[in-house]
Design a protein around this nucleic acid. Structure first.
Length: 736
DNA sequence: AGCACGCCGACT
DNA sequence: GTCGGCGTGCTC
């Protein structure tokens, strides 16, 4: 028997690829990385060839032939296919679904691997208004006359700039095309950047970092560099200089940014500096431009590719450098389906492709710091703030005894007033949107509960409605208690809406800008809102998380953290790490220009060791302490975790599956892997479904993965697996 | 995941 | 007597 079968990864939840016979009609040699159309059961699906010339374990008569070959050449190169293979193995996820996740929508659905060109039109030499074919077509004649007036050397015009001829101009052009009087000119959709902006002089630390990553003209090999730079220390300038070196060596750069970090400002900055094709890949992009950017990266046409986590799968034939900005950011971890970590895959890819990778952050993740401690990653610090700006002064404000106005202490309010009187900008941070996190009856104690989740409903005053922030369930706010009919249930606690209202009462003549998911819901609204924040019309800024991420607000001299206690007492093992990062990041918003900044942290726990360590020694000291705690608790980065989650309409079904899974695990050798649980999830019911989880932990990553690889096929076969929805989360970022 | 097959309940 | 419920098995 000849070994001529083709292994195809198809988007179905099967752990392995399926074997097919070669297509009946062979137009060109089939190669790994090409897309094919195959029958799977009764369906026709687009799959990716992962191997050719293989010998199938199945007899020939059980194999079907490939129906069609979609690509004349591989869509994915070796490096990208190996990355897909690695991700499928490491995250224990079906290879076909990983392959599907790696492709832009249009290509995943079998669309042609060709970019939409911008179509422009120009007259052919034989076109004159007197042409016989135009005798009975006055509108076409007018269009020809117009194009003639533009002169013979004029640049071809796109349909957009001809709209003066009405919406039907496309029809006119097509008729003229048929008559041979106009022709189409296609060109690349990648907008050429102006470039040319001169780079600022680097300070000594920046130069040292750049030279360490890219020392000479020749492209360096693999190394992971941690660029630890306080906010305002010029990390971006280091990236830019490295990109320039990669460009000079004829190499592409992949720049990965958090979801919220891919702003028009960042793109504009890159385009001002570099006159090269740049592709931006992010979730807000429509399908066609996303495909076009991806194809430009794959062809090597794009020199710079900027994208969010999924961009890590983009084929880059001339890759020379990877940068992950704000590498600690949680948005690099996908939280559904293939639960991969974009940063971790980027490091794997950098090693595979032999290129340097830079992980930049003011607050590196603990796992990144631990890699550096072990000597796997090189560490570079930028401690100097650009322009000589001083680091902000952090202050803990004990709010235990004083009166609070919507969560604001008198001391914080007077500090705000002082700054406002000096015409400086103030930023207040509260990580909770809405008016109040719970609505309570003062007479009987009833509290508004989400009918579908184990959670309180948040009261939103603007709409006078209750909304569950976990499942989206919404109801009108009841005018009276549903239990005892007492009027006017009370909103307890504060969200940004209430704080905004209280601030408006305190500072009636001051412009207040609230920035949270409710005020920036529309696409693009965040960018517009951030422009408002810069405009100077709003001396008082109030917002959630989204305000803390890397936006330059040079006039802010005071940052107020309204409630640090939330993060101090969260049950999650990463809560303290996240709080430390949050406080340092939010503090980074203050005093970036010449004015010194101040950060006031309100807390009921002024003696908390985390806050003290942070104040005394900064993020580095806090991270050191947190690492010791993790080591003592045998938690990551000193051990490795995998979380098996299950959910079902009945809690018994979810637990039954996890108990069965536990039995399977207990039956296999697992002396170096702890199995903890199953236990109900911290929020047991969410969106009407009961959730439970089983945690696996090991100090030996290889042993953990070997166990998972043996276990999962058995779990697929469990009858209980059909009665619950379940998933595996390798390296979970939170345990909820 | 789909999609079929298959075997028990209330309906044209 | 049939339509259809979702339990079970399979996809090269």
């Amino acid at each position: 028997m000849v070994d001529d079968c083709v292994r195809v990864a198809v988007p179905v939840p099967l752990r392995e690829a399926l074997d097919y016979l070669p297509p009946v009609v062979v137009e060109w040699p089939l190669q790994p990385g090409m897309r094919v159309r195959v029958r799977v059961g009764r369906r026709r699906l687009i799959g990716l060839v992962v191997a050719t010339g293989v010998r199938s374990a199945l007899p020939r008569n059980r194999l079907r032939p490939i129906e069609a070959v979609l690509d004349a050449e591989p869509l994915l190169d070796d490096a990208t296919r190996e990355l897909i293979r690695f991700a499928a193995d490491y995250y224990h996820y079906p290879i076909g679904e990983v392959a599907a996740a790696a492709l832009p929508e249009r290509l995943r659905n079998g669309g042609e691997a060709q970019a939409a060109a911008i179509v422009r039109w120009r007259l052919t030499p034989q076109a004159t208004p007197e042409h016989a074919a135009l005798a009975r077509a006055p509108r076409q004649r007018a269009l020809v006359s117009y194009l003639l007036e533009q002169g013979a050397d004029a640049a071809p015009l796109d349909t957009q700039s001809l709209t003066a001829f009405g919406a039907g101009v496309g029809v006119l052009l097509r008729e003229l095309l048929a008559k041979g009087l106009v022709e189409r000119v296609r060109e690349s959709a990648l907008a050429p950047a102006p470039g040319g902006e001169l780079p600022p002089a680097l300070h000594a630390e920046q130069r040292a970092a750049v030279d360490a990553v890219w020392p000479s003209a020749a492209a360096p090999g693999y190394a992971t560099h941690v660029l630890e730079g306080v906010t305002g220390s010029g990390k971006t300038e280091v990236y830019m200089t490295l990109i320039a070196r990669a460009l000079a060596a004829g190499r592409q750069t992949l720049l990965l940014v958090p979801e919220i970090g891919l702003t028009p400002q960042l793109l504009a900055r890159l385009r001002r500096r570099f006159a090269v094709p740049l592709a931006a890949l992010h979730s807000g992009l429509a399908d066609a431009p996303r495909r076009d950017g991806w194809l430009a990266a794959r062809s090597g046409e794009a020199d710079i590719v900027v994208g969010t986590r999924s961009a890590v799968f983009t084929p880059l034939p001339r890759l020379g450098l990877i940068v992950v900005d704000e590498e600690h950011d949680a948005s690099f971890k996908q939280q559904e389906g293939l639960r991969y970590h974009g940063r971790d895959l980027a490091v794997w890819r950098a090693r595979r492709q032999g290129v340097p990778i830079v992980l930049g952050s003011a607050t590196p993740a603990l796992e990144t710091l631990q890699h550096a401690r072990r000597g796997h990653y090189a560490r570079h610090r930028l401690a100097t703030r650009a322009g000589g700006a001083r680091a902000p002064l952090l202050r803990i404000l004990d709010i235990r005894h004083g009166k609070l106005e919507a969560g604001l202490s008198a001391q914080l309010l007077s500090a705000v007033r002082e700054r406002l009187e000096r015409n400086e900008q103030v930023l207040l941070f509260l990580n909770r949107r809405g008016f109040a996190p719970v609505l309570i009856c003062h007479e009987c104690g009833w509290a508004a509960q989400c009918p579908r989740c184990d959670a309180h409903m948040t009261y939103h005053a603007a709409s006078n409605r209750l909304r569950c922030h976990h499942c989206g369930h919404e109801t009108p706010a009841p005018p009276a208690c549903p239990e005892c009919a007492a009027p006017d249930p009370r909103p307890i606690g504060q969200g940004t809406e209430r704080v905004e209202q209280a601030l408006a009462a305190q500072f009636p003549d001051v412009g207040i800008l609230r920035i949270d998911r409710d005020t920036t819901r529309r696409r693009g609204a965040l960018d517009a809102t951030l422009e408002d924040a810069h405009s100077g019309r709003f001396p008082l800024l109030l917002g959630t998380q989204m305000l803390t991420k890397g936006h330059h607000l040079p006039n802010v001299t005071l940052v107020g953290v309204i409630d640090a206690d939330q993060g101090l007492f969260s049950a999650d093992y990463r809560a303290h790490e996240r709080l430390a990062q949050l406080l340092v990041q939010v503090a980074g918003r203050a005093g970036r220009a010449q004015r010194p900044g101040e950060v006031i942290i309100q807390t009921h726990q002024p003696e908390h060791p985390l806050l003290h360590t942070l104040l005394a020694g900064g993020y580095r000291a806090a991270a050191d302490t947190l690492l010791s705690e993790r080591e003592a608790a045998a938690m990551p980065p000193f051990t490795w975790l995998a979380l098996l989650r299950a959910e079902a309409a009945q809690q018994t079904a979810a637990l039954a599956f996890l108990n069965a899974a536990r039995k399977v695990l207990d039956g296999l050798r697992r002396d170096v892997v702890d199995v903890l649980g199953p236990v109900p999830a911290p929020m047991e019911r969410r969106a009407g479904r009961y959730r439970a989880q089983l945690l696996l932990r090991s100090g030996d990553r290889g042993a953990l993965h070997a166990l998972l690889a043996r276990t999962l096929p058995e779990l697929d076969a469990l009858p209980e697996a059909r009665r619950a929805r379940w998933s595996l989360d390798v390296d979970p970022v939170d345990l909820y």
